[in-house]
Design a protein around this nucleic acid. Structure first.
Lengths: 330, 330
DNA sequence: TTGAAAGCGTTACCAT
DNA sequence: ATGGTAACGCTTTCAA
């Protein structure tokens, strides 16, 4: 039995294709009577418009593509998972579907991240993760594709991005630790994104502004993994025995650092710093105990948090640092 | 500037549309010369066929839809993430894209899980997670839609499924614990899927077969969450103080149970049981220590592991328990 | 080996 | 307020 199409509905109702189409698209210039009649038939047949015909004619896919970095089991990674959750929620509110991709070698070398857009499979791409080299970006910039970097940005390029406010995060975390009395604080993070570099620079600045010497903020550069955190912590602790606190660039690094400490039998309280609330929750590895570092309110400023957005309008020349809203979302 | 289409390529090469199309689809009946000429032009223009036109004409979307349960931040859940990773890897090998969905109220009540298939947006749906009620299934069964349950199944219904071998898993885990000398073993799991029920039944059976009384395998039914595991462990321990081991239906429950134990200051070694290797890794919460339960080889049988597959052929009447391969994948 | 033409199921424009 | 009809860009017979 052939699929029911808009034509079947039209015939059955004795109206034209256009009428049915207009009803389906909630066009107000259809009389309530006809509308009702059509809707009834649609219901009766369980009619479902063909998405491809629709997309072909309307030149709109209502699909956004989300690209994750080529990490092992990246979909099982809570960091990316949280981001995808957020994207999914908002996208489905707006009637978009989310299509997944991984920026593996094939995906990149075949230019598939571009093709997805050019073949109109997706209306826009959200590119999460940092394994993005300059070569990719040229074509995106040139063709003005709807391509947005997430938690990453490329200074000097007309590429839209949206990122957590890492600078503010770093400042809040630094002030939190300073407020607890720490005077020598290690910093572990990767350097594969510009946001990560911001994090480090801003963390050090905030510590210095808080009254400790720059040399008392030793840092280590490592991979954004548990192993990276483990090694970075070891490296730092062997060189800075008077260090009393550490900040990791992400949860995985922090967990790795804590694992190192606990193997060293070092007393250790770890947790997760939420920049939006300014709260330091200690649920990461250990059950909360009342006798480890009590959380104190931040010394002065209220946390502000937020997002940084650099939006390139499809036709425009330069990226704006306008925090209003990302491009491609009007 | 308009998008380049198959027409542009055809004109430029002085061939017809069909020829270009055939080349693009690797049809062998095109002469190498023409093929080459066309391919050159394609390359020159960075031509990318419109996915919708293609799907419309070929009635094939090359997209599979993956539906996850409506848990909070489900994309950040490692359990589901691992499954999605596996699906993604295989799908992209086969040239399929993966589209995400969440079985939330709207998605279900509007019948969107059906519409996705009927509108041809997706060639098939993989339905992961258990919040699936009988009402959904009727239409799927009736219309023979390409719909596959993952780690879940519905006895007596013509719905394809694919699931880990929970029965074998339970047996291996039970034998592992028995082999370590435990004689009273708690079991915590949910009951929201038939696979979970299998897990429990099979675990108890294996314990009984291993020589302990059924009453020495107390079990608790709880949500598949950390909180569920925490509460179930508490419930069991308060009633069965001579219990020396527990098995959780998933990692989250196990973590919850361990958290309860560690708050009780009970010495506790936890880990993850891999049914494929028969290995019990203890990396879950604590760094490995040599002085906790040493892993011993399994008492007798080699682990077999594997999948259970019930495949319904699109036109067929009954579900087969044939482990050959899932339906809809020939 | 290649080309012509008829779909595929919608949307969107222009009439009426 | 509704209908006719030409796109949309490709695949797929069927002829040549």
């Amino acid at each position: 039995m052939a699929r029911t199409t808009i034509k079947d509905i039209a015939q059955e109702c004795g109206v034209s294709l256009s009428t049915v189409s207009l009803v389906l698209n909630n066009n107000p210039r259809i009389s309530p009577a006809t509308r009702e009649k059509v809707l009834k038939a649609v219901e009766r047949h369980q009619y479902q418009p063909n998405a491809f015909a629709r997309s072909l004619a309307s030149r709109q896919s209502s699909i956004i593509s989300v690209v994750l970095p080529d990490l092992n089991h990246v979909f099982a990674d809570p960091y990316f998972g949280e981001i995808v959750s957020g994207i999914y929620d908002r996208a489905s509110e707006l009637g978009y579907k989310v299509m997944l991709d991984v920026a593996n070698h094939r995906f990149v070398s075949t230019g598939e991240y571009i093709n997805t857009l050019k073949s109109k499979r997706a209306d826009a791409t959200l590119f999460i993760g940092s394994s993005i080299y300059d070569t990719y970006l040229d074509q995106i910039e040139k063709e003005g594709l709807a391509f947005i970097l997430v938690n990453h940005y490329m200074p000097g390029r007309d590429i839209s991005y949206i990122a957590a406010d890492y600078k503010e995060t770093a400042r809040l975390a630094a002030e939190h630790l300073l407020g607890l009395g720490h005077r020598c604080i290690g910093f572990l993070s990767g350097t594969t994104t510009n946001t990560a570099l911001d994090l480090r620079a801003s963390f050090i600045d905030a510590c210095v502004a808080g009254g400790i010497k720059e040399t008392d903020v030793p840092w280590a550069d490592a991979w954004f993994t548990e192993q990276g955190g483990y090694e970075a912590a070891q490296w730092l602790i062997e060189r800075y025995p008077n260090m009393t606190a550490m900040m990791g660039g992400n949860d995985k690094m922090a967990i790795g650092a804590m694992r190192y400490l606990s193997q060293k039998k070092t007393a250790c309280a770890g947790g997760h710093f939420d920049y939006r609330s300014g709260r330091h929750s200690r649920s990461l590895l250990h059950p909360p105990r009342t006798d480890d570092h009590p959380a104190r309110p931040l010394p002065h400023r209220q946390p502000r948090g937020g997002l940084r957005v650099g939006a390139v309008q499809p036709g425009s020349e330069a990226a704006s640092e306008d925090p209003a809203r990302p491009a491609y979302r009007s």
